[in-house]
Nucleic acid binder design. Structure first.
Length: 342
DNA sequence: AAACAGCCCAACCGCGGCGAA
DNA sequence: TTTCGCCGCGGTTGGGCTGTT
């Protein structure tokens, strides 16, 4: 690979792997307030130990407020199939035709489900064409067990014409329109699968709920998935992060994204945050930061900043509050429940 | 109930494109 | 025109989940 470009960041200095709730919250709070003009600088400004690419990916694929969660509709699936036929693996291009869907999501869906569906369809097309041409497919497939698809992966997941014949020849013959039937089956299978993805979200929620129930137990110790990091609270409390070379006030965010009513308000989310507030207490948080306030004020003077109040608890209570920032749409937390005690 | 295998998807990686200097 | 730096894209990976034996 030669001397390539220098790495985008010092890998030893950045955190990798699943995002914690605290990191998510920090990223959301920061972007909602300051926008994301410069991904490379953002982690530093937001006080995140992540590289810019990681932040961008997390935001674009998971935290963005306009994301459409849940199963793909039949229309969406059809659109993807058509666009893939036209553009190939141009996932971002395909995603641009599907509002609320990310290229990563579509790519994953394609690689896990839709590719199979397409393969099935093609298999049947070949069989159908050969039938139309008056070619008897049976003998060739019977005499030669060689699959049509030589691709190893495909061989694993799709029935070849050969083994299809072996397995279901009579069934295929009896179906009025086998192609349509299989397509329908594939689609239903796909929808089931995506529904299961939804169930996963539900599972995530239930895991969070479980944690909440744990937290409600008297005398139980609540293990917060938060690192001890005052910068986070600074952001939420509208205290600028003090860095050596970055001026938050210069970060462009004049047009914050619309975080209005689009997202689904999750009662569990609120409950979690409410408990969080109770357990730690806003006063306690502010108390903790008291010592930093002088530093904050100095920084503000130094940087010539004029920050608008960004009250964490107001944010969370939105949209009931007057705040135009809303965290309620966030799915809490995909990367967390497997190990809630982090 | 435990072990295993396969699936799913969030996250990472490296490269290409593009604009600025 | 060249070089540099950033962003975004597409491919790949790895850990968790689920189904099967």
């Amino acid at each position: 690979m030669g001397n390539g470009r220098s790495p985008c960041c010092d890998k030893s200095q950045v955190k990798r792997g699943p995002w914690s709730p605290a990191e998510d919250m920090r990223l959301i709070a920061f972007i909602q307030k300051y926008g994301h003009d410069n991904w490379r600088a953002l982690p530093k400004q937001a006080g995140l130990m992540r590289c810019g690419k990681s932040c961008r990916l997390r935001w674009v694929n998971y935290l963005r407020p306009d994301l459409k969660k849940g199963e793909f509709t039949k229309e969406e699936v059809e659109t993807i199939m058509k666009l893939h036929e036209a553009f190939g693996n141009k996932w971002s291009k395909i995603a641009s035709h599907l509002p609320g869907r990310t290229d990563n999501e579509i790519k994953n869906a394609w690689n896990t489900h839709l590719k199979k569906r397409l393969a099935n369809k093609k298999t049947l097309e070949i069989a159908s064409n050969e039938n139309k041409m008056g070619i008897s497919i049976a003998p060739s497939f019977i005499s030669s067990s060689k699959p049509i698809f030589l691709n190893e992966t495909l061989n694993q997941v799709i029935p070849t014409v050969g083994n299809m014949y072996d397995m279901e020849a009579s069934e295929v013959a009896m179906v009025k329109d086998p192609e349509e039937d299989l397509e329908e089956k594939s689609f239903n299978e796909f929808v089931d699968i995506t529904k299961n993805s939804n169930q996963l979200s539900t599972l995530v929620s239930s895991n969070v709920n479980k944690s909440l129930q744990e937290a409600e137990k008297p005398n139980s110790v609540v293990e917060m998935p938060m690192e001890e990091d005052y910068d986070f609270w600074k952001i939420l409390d509208n205290i600028p992060i003090q860095t050596n070379d970055v001026q938050l006030g210069q970060v462009g965010a004049s047009n914050p994204p619309n975080f209005g009513q689009e997202g689904v308000q999750d009662a569990e989310t609120k409950k979690y945050l409410h408990d969080l507030e109770n357990d730690f207490g806003s006063d306690a948080t502010k108390e903790t930061n008291k010592d930093l306030c002088v530093e904050k004020n100095n920084a503000m003077v130094e940087l010539g900043m004029n920050p608008q109040p960004l009250d964490f608890y107001e944010i969370i209570r939105s949209p009931e509050s007057d705040s135009d920032i809303d965290l309620g749409y966030v799915h809490w937390w995909s990367s967390w429940p497997q190990n809630p005690g982090l």
